[in-house]
Design a protein around this nucleic acid. Structure first.
Lengths: 186, 186
DNA sequence: GTCTATAATAGGATAGAC
DNA sequence: GTCTATCCTATTATAGAC
């Protein structure tokens, strides 16, 4: 009676959710199993090398998601201002107004962080590069564009921490609002 | 033959170090034992309720440290500008230029986070209140002072994440530099 | 207060049937 | 591809001697 079950992408979505919520060490195989509805053996069928491979594939999955759902649509937007709007709306939705954690942060904090080094760096770089490109297109200097891009990611990540720590999600909302008006300012 | 060994404060310092480095779930009793040079039984002598109590006491310990080494000396500084300098220097040293993680962030990310809720919120609030006080003393309006204080903590926490994720510590240095000149600006 | 020894459980991972 | 059963190790925690 069990047959189609879930696609690989759906499994990765559920794993992503669990890792974001409980962190890498905090997500046991038992929990990952419950979260996906798959037995441990099924998980090992998809991810022969176990939990570390799950996290790696989840990271790659999120990267693909961002590319198709954020970075690509961004290129179609008309103006730099529109692009910025689009990115901030997407981030606000993805982090649910500061209520959901960032996978990148969770993996940076894991003991196995060295294992995820390269993809983590890549994910941060891609993100900052996208913001930088918007700034450049808006006519900001190369140096300023880079600083604004770094600061953009810094503030999103920081706001997520402060919200989680204080249980006050207005900080995330205000950060998004501030970024909306300050990133492209001259 | 073993006798004085370590003071409670020294033990807490070593535990703080381990929790910052490996996170809450990532710090096993075996590691906490090696880090302190104390056997497990000795740790349970100091912390009868185990790891969660260690983290709680480490948090309280850090709070005391910050009070005596940062918040109190801050009150003696002459001008708001001097106070800001003092705090940024202390943070730069405490986080070793972005190379060492924040205990607050690590505990926010832990699965047991609800257990640390109150002290975490308290620690963040105390920190932001200190920055807010400096801003107010410098003549900024109440609303702006609060925003600047929240943004201050957001950017420090965010910079630590981005540095860990990209292995590029210049972001922390630049964040500190930016804060130095922007926090009290009118 | 510290140690050695040990219990009890949870965690990651595999075998083999279906 | 999924399940049940199982293995091994790590982890938390305690007991009892010194």
């Amino acid at each position: 009676m069990p047959a189609p079950i879930l696609s690989k992408e759906e499994v990765l979505d559920l794993l992503l959710n669990t890792f974001r919520d409980r962190g890498y060490e905090g997500s046991s195989l038992a929990e990952l199993s419950t979260a996906t509805g798959l037995g441990k053996s099924s998980l090992y069928h998809y991810f022969p090398s176990g939990k570390a491979e799950m996290a790696e594939q989840v990271l790659a999955h999120m990267d693909r998601q961002l590319t198709t759902n954020l970075y690509e649509p961004l290129r179609l937007a008309q103006t730099p201002a529109k692009k910025l709007e689009l990115m901030l709306d997407a981030l606000d939705a993805f982090y649910e107004g500061g209520r959901k954690a960032c996978l990148l942060e969770r993996l940076c904090a894991s003991v196995d962080r060295t294992r995820f080094r390269r993809p983590l760096r890549q994910a941060f770089t891609t993100w900052m590069d996208a913001v930088e490109a918007i700034c450049l297109e808006a006519g900001l200097s190369s140096a300023v564009a880079r600083e604004r891009a770094e600061d953009f990611v810094v503030r999103i990540e920081g706001a997520l921490i402060v919200c989680a720590g204080t249980d006050d999600y207005s900080v995330f909302a205000r950060t998004i609002r501030d970024l909306r008006s300050s990133v492209l300012a001259r």
